[in-house]
């Protein structure tokens, strides 16, 4: 829209009181709308139009996990990809479960998630193709400095969870994502390995010395939110939780939660990217998602991943994949 036309609209809306304030207000909203949408000729810096209008280079929709998103890694990687490829990327931060569910409906073009079992099931079902490792880090069990369950320094994650369960009557609490995310799936796997019957065990299940102490009913709480929010809630409640190291390090300066258990091989946390099957969903941006997968596994992207977080946290938040360049 022409800038002057907008100005005329705006003037008309404010200048003539005799036309009635109602028309003035309506024109004002209309002028504001026109100004903001057609702002190309008026706003100080030329801006791109609303998304999704470039037909030949359609936007690529990437569904990823809150753990990747909250770390800020994609804010570094995606602009580099956009410059290198010309594609625009829409990053949707959801849990792994929701990301794969969106993929199963063909709503997104690629997914970057961390739940190997669920990913393999999606590949087997023909929902996604071309699954490739991008990076990895590890999960840590974090908790309050007082450590009511006495798990600090344990080498076995399932044993640590069993002790949290056993100490539930003594003020030990556990906060769970509860959102079918990759972290939540890992947590349930660890509860199952803890051998208490159930993931997580119900307070009444046969644990060594289990007694129904007062207040033990709320020892296990589900937030249903992302990793960052869940860590904040754990801190507020002085509870234990399972977190990926990247999000933990990102929030560590704000939170009084320490790493209790780390280094158990069962706490490995690999991230894979995969393309949503274009054969199955005809509206998928096949070329764009292929370009994104190729770029994220390329040397420049892998280097950027290895550098990310070094300055701020003294250690990289994610380890790039070795030999990720070859399939």
């Amino acid at each position: 829209m022409d800038c002057r036309a907008v100005m005329r609209l705006a003037t008309a809306s404010t200048g003539r009181g005799s036309r009635g304030s109602l028309a003035a207000a309506f024109l004002a909203v209309a002028a504001l709308t026109a100004l903001t949408w057609g702002g190309v000729s008026c706003s100080p810096a030329p801006r791109q139009g609303p998304g999704g209008e470039e037909r030949p280079n359609r936007a690529v929709i990437l569904a990823t996990t809150t753990s990747v998103h909250d770390s800020g890694l994609l804010d570094v990687l995606i602009p580099q990809f956009e410059r290198a490829s010309g594609y625009r990327v829409k990053t949707i931060a959801v849990g792994t479960g929701q990301a794969l569910a969106l993929a199963a409906r063909g709503e997104v073009d690629a997914v970057l998630v961390h739940a190997p079992a669920a990913e393999e099931a999606a590949v087997a079902a023909g929902i996604v193709v071309d699954r490739r490792p991008v990076m990895h880090n590890d999960f840590v069990i974090v908790g309050p400095p007082s450590d009511p369950a006495g798990i600090r320094g344990l080498k076995s994650a399932p044993e640590a969870l069993a002790r949290v369960f056993a100490a539930r009557g003594r003020g030990a609490r556990f906060v769970s994502r509860g959102d079918d995310s990759g972290t939540h799936q890992k947590e349930r796997e660890l509860w199952a390995l803890a051998g208490l019957g159930g993931d997580p065990p119900s307070p009444g299940s046969a644990a060594p010395g289990a007694d129904e102490g007062a207040g033990s009913a709320s020892w296990y709480q589900e937030t249903g939110q992302g990793m960052g929010q869940t860590l904040i809630i754990s801190w507020e409640k002085q509870a234990y939780t399972l977190a990926d190291r990247a999000t933990y390090l990102t929030l560590k300066p704000r939170l009084d939660l320490g790493v209790m258990v780390e280094g158990d091989p069962r706490l490995a946390n690999p991230y894979h990217i995969m393309r949503v099957n274009p054969v199955r969903f005809d509206r998928v941006n096949a070329a764009g998602s292929r370009a994104l997968v190729e770029w994220l596994t390329s040397a420049p992207a892998q280097e950027a991943i290895g550098r990310f977080g070094l300055e701020q946290h003294g250690q990289p938040l994610f380890e790039p994949e070795e030999g990720a360049e070859g399939p």
Binding site: T66, H69, D70, G72, A93, Q225, G226, M227, G228, Q229, L231, I232, T250, L251, P253, R254, L255
Partner: peptide, 9 residues
Amino acid sequence: LMEVSRGHF
């Protein structure tokens, strides 16, 4: 909402 979940209060 996002900045809160990133701890950037």
